[in-house]
Design a protein around this nucleic acid. Structure first.
Lengths: 224, 224
DNA sequence: GTATTACGCTACGCCCCGTAGCGAAAGCGT
DNA sequence: ACGCTTTCGCTACGGGGCGTAGCGTAATAC
């Protein structure tokens, strides 16, 4: 059970909430505590039951909230899980370890730690699967999860260029392409390692990966 | 409706079928045509309805088969979809285009074409999600899908070493590590590009990716 | 021909979905 | 202090998928 006397304020929280009609300034306000409790309960249920075992009725009772309250905020399982998982990704921080290689390894390790959590794994993969036939859902995932994290790559790249480890990229279009490419290679490799092959993202693997990413397969043997 | 007078034989088909008790040499044999019809119907349903919309009853009626027949072969949605998707991956072939870069691009393009099919996308991601809490399922995916395709990397690598494009790898353990790493980088990047960012695997992206993979981010500007 | 197994069909209890309707509670504005 | 408005918890409902059981029939092996 939770207290529903939700502290209002905290503007800009509702990342992807719906029906946030700004004209509703009268009447009983929605409980922000209920939002938080529902999202936390969703992550709990993902850990214990996985995607297919997660039921909205179960989440509601876990959160100490009526099922109708949950349905007033989220349209269904997909939207709910996207928001619940998106909160996890906000913990990622751009590392500053002194060299490009170390920064890359830092991002990889952070991302791997995130994906080692069952709620992130089952939730993320499931909504990606659902987004195959739901373009709006895919866009929601991209905006509230993926695009929010590309700053990690941009920050690391800018620092490396300041240090002289990377040549400056004069073409802004090319720079954007490179950021997207690198983000995809890092995220994709970690996802595959963690979820598909199921082998650990240990120091050895991170080292091998970073070496190939920075100096390439051909010259990887000759790198520092 | 399908003919159920299944032609027997075709040994070794049942990749991951269950209860294939070899002692069952008597009685009416199982219809191989039913197997094929069910797997095809599963892929059809994945395209039209996606993972969450797929129901075993629907698959059965689509395949012209009783629901009980389906349950005699597969324990549930997960196992069924793994087998249905695994068949798609058998179409991948090791390319031989004359250079390492061209071979990499060939594998990437084949893999991207495969993941552009909705049945592969929704099916694969969904079972990966489910495998988070089901170790046996994850192993089944790894064996019947992933591991079967690592020969693509091994073949390309061997050819590149014959051509002198890559240094020989004397350490067999290191070689195995490199194969796994490269496979993960290729598959992961394509998955991310296709499913997460939703942007196309076009010639430009494949070229950029191959350049970074072979010559690294640092020296990518100076490669051939 | 007989034993054995698979097949199609029907029916069942169980659970979850998503919505509707109700009275009560909690702020907002005066 | 007092209505107004909106949200809250609760209950109930039809609809549909799940997975199983039981039956009579069909197709093989011996």
């Amino acid at each position: 059970m939770i207290s529903l006397t939700g502290a209002r304020g905290e503007g800009g929280y509702g990342r992807a909430m719906q029906s946030r009609t700004p004209a509703s300034r009268t009447g009983r306000p929605r409980s922000a505590a209920a939002d938080a409790a529902i999202l936390a309960a969703t992550r709990e249920a993902l850990v214990e039951l996985g995607w297919s075992g997660l039921t909205l009725g179960g989440v509601a009772s876990r959160a100490g909230v009526a099922k109708t309250t949950l349905y007033r905020r989220w349209a269904g399982k997909n939207e709910l899980v996207v928001d619940a998982v998106a909160e996890l990704f906000d913990a990622l921080e751009p590392p500053d370890r002194g060299s490009l290689a170390a920064d890359v390894e830092g991002v990889v390790l952070q991302f791997a730690a995130l994906l080692s959590r069952p709620e992130a794994r089952s939730g993320l993969m499931a909504v990606l699967s659902e987004s195959t036939l739901d373009e709006a859902l895919r866009e929601r995932i991209r905006v509230s999860i993926v695009e929010r994290q590309e700053h990690l790559v941009r920050a690391g790249r800018a620092r490396a260029q300041d240090r002289g480890e990377l040549p400056p990229e004069p073409d802004p279009d090319g720079a954007a392409r490179t950021v997207g490419l690198l983000f995809g290679m890092v995220a994709g490799a970690v996802v595959h390692r963690t979820l598909v092959s199921g082998r650990p993202v240990d120091e050895e693997w991170v080292h091998d990966f970073t070496r190939v990413l920075l100096w390439g397969l051909v010259t990887a043997g000759t790198g520092p």
